[in-house]
């Protein structure tokens, strides 16, 4: 590599949270950086930048992925859901409400990644067991160590979303 090297530039189209954008990007730019810097959606956080912490989780064409391990140019034509697509102030998604209710966060840095991953999990598996939830969030690190409450919150949201009561609440 020489300092003279330049990345090729590409026009890409992204549909993020239902909104179409056309952006020119350098090939070397990561999807997470384009989401944050070009689209201004800073809810998606950057942690490790090598696919270990899960903070940058977004849904790309229906699959949860680490957006630090996708080049923006690779996402050309894709449909993306970020944390901003889940819910807003005053209209929180049941998962967000459950996180609030269960105190499933302290500093909140990992929360967007946790929520987006959990959102994708519940889409595919509406009634996951505790072990399934734990396995599903194994790629999301919470350095405050709120895992127990996070698992509880996801379980609670699953119960609410699927319209089923927990066994203890069943008549």
């Amino acid at each position: 590599m020489s300092a003279m090297n330049k990345s090729s530039r590409h026009m890409i189209r992204l549909q993020v949270n239902g909104q179409e954008s056309e952006i020119e990007v350098e090939a070397r730019r990561l999807l997470v950086d384009v989401i944050r810097e070009d689209l201004g959606l800073t809810g998606t956080h950057i942690g490790c930048e090598h696919g270990v912490c899960g903070n940058c989780t977004v849904i790309l064409n229906g699959e949860a992925v680490n957006s630090c391990l996708v080049l923006a140019v690779q996402a050309d034509g894709a449909e993306i859901t970020t944390i901003e697509g889940l819910g807003q102030q005053g209209g929180l998604h049941p998962l967000q409400k459950a996180f609030k209710k269960q105190h499933a966060l302290q500093c909140g840095f990992c929360t967007p990644g946790m929520l987006v991953n959990a959102y994708d999990l519940l889409k595919k598996s509406p009634n996951p067991g505790r072990e399934d939830i734990k396995g599903a969030i194994a790629g999301n690190m919470c350095r405050c160590g709120c895992y127990d409450n996070i698992v509880e919150a996801i379980e609670g949201a699953a119960t609410e979303l699927s319209g089923k009561k927990k066994p203890s609440e069943a008549p």
């Binding site: 590599m1 990345s7 090729s8 590409h10 090939a27 070397r28 950086d33 080049l71 140019v73």
Partner: peptide, 11 residues
């Protein structure tokens, strides 16, 4: 960190 510059092709 971020990747060093490169040219990208998707044949």
């Amino acid at each position: 960190m971020k990747p060093a510059p490169f040219n990208y092709f998707a044949p």
